[in-house]
Design a protein around this nucleic acid. Structure first.
Length: 200
DNA sequence: CTCTCGATTAGCT
DNA sequence: GCTAATCGAGAGA
């Protein structure tokens, strides 16, 4: 097991730096039957009050989004489109809405636990989307607002180096309503992760 | 209370 | 490329 990522990394005061930092790290979830883990290969940066795509836009506080105003180091899980749960890591100091959306993971551990719930789906498509990440890893609203330095969900060093040259930047997905913020390149994809993992 | 729409996905054309 | 599925959050009355 790799070294668990500590609180300091989550207190980073910049969602872009955070989104980049977590690429190539290992996301782990403790399931009653064993751990499920995988390498994070796609993220999106959301944040600060001026980001029109962020749930904390304009610092408006609601029962749902209050989590992202808390100090970094906890999860922000919310329900979307009536059927999907989306996982974020809350970042930054308390009072500033900032988070990284985990959009893609390559499952490396606990595959035998995943198989039954992703029946008939090829392995490389198990968690190649934000809704699929939570479904594959068994993350639900019950995991909203919990510590990322805890025993249920955490992030570890993977030992993988992610060169800047292998990170693709694109606009974020599904935020067309966010006007000028819809176009900003705040989505980060490490496409070569799959190749790299084949060598392990 | 009512209405709109979403940080998506799967399946079909 | 298009859209149904599906329901709660958020805004406004």
């Amino acid at each position: 097991m790799g070294k668990k990522i500590g609180l300091a990394a989550y207190l980073i005061d910049d969602p872009v730096q955070g989104a980049l930092f977590f690429l190539g790290k290992k996301l782990a979830v403790k399931d009653p039957k064993g751990n499920i883990a995988g390498i994070i290969m796609e993220t999106e940066a959301y944040g600060r009050a001026e980001d029109k795509a962020c749930h904390g836009y304009g610092n408006r506080l609601t029962p749902r989004n209050k989590i992202i105003f808390q100090q970094g180091g906890i999860t922000y899980v919310y329900f979307c489109y009536g059927m999907h749960h989306l996982l974020n890591f809350v970042l930054g100091p308390e009072g500033v809405p900032m988070a990284v959306l985990i959009r893609g993971v390559i499952i490396t551990e606990g595959k035998e636990l995943v198989k039954p719930r992703r029946k008939g789906i090829p392995e490389h498509q198990w968690a190649d989307g934000p809704g699929k990440v939570t479904k594959t890893m068994g993350i639900t609203l019950a995991d909203n607002g919990i510590s990322l330095i805890g025993e249920r969900i955490w992030v570890e060093e993977s030992g993988l180096e992610v060169p800047d040259s292998e990170i693709e930047r694109t606009p974020r997905i599904g935020v067309d309503y966010a006007e000028e913020w819809a176009k900003k390149p705040l989505r980060f994809v490490w496409k070569k992760a799959i190749n790299r993992l084949c060598l392990l």
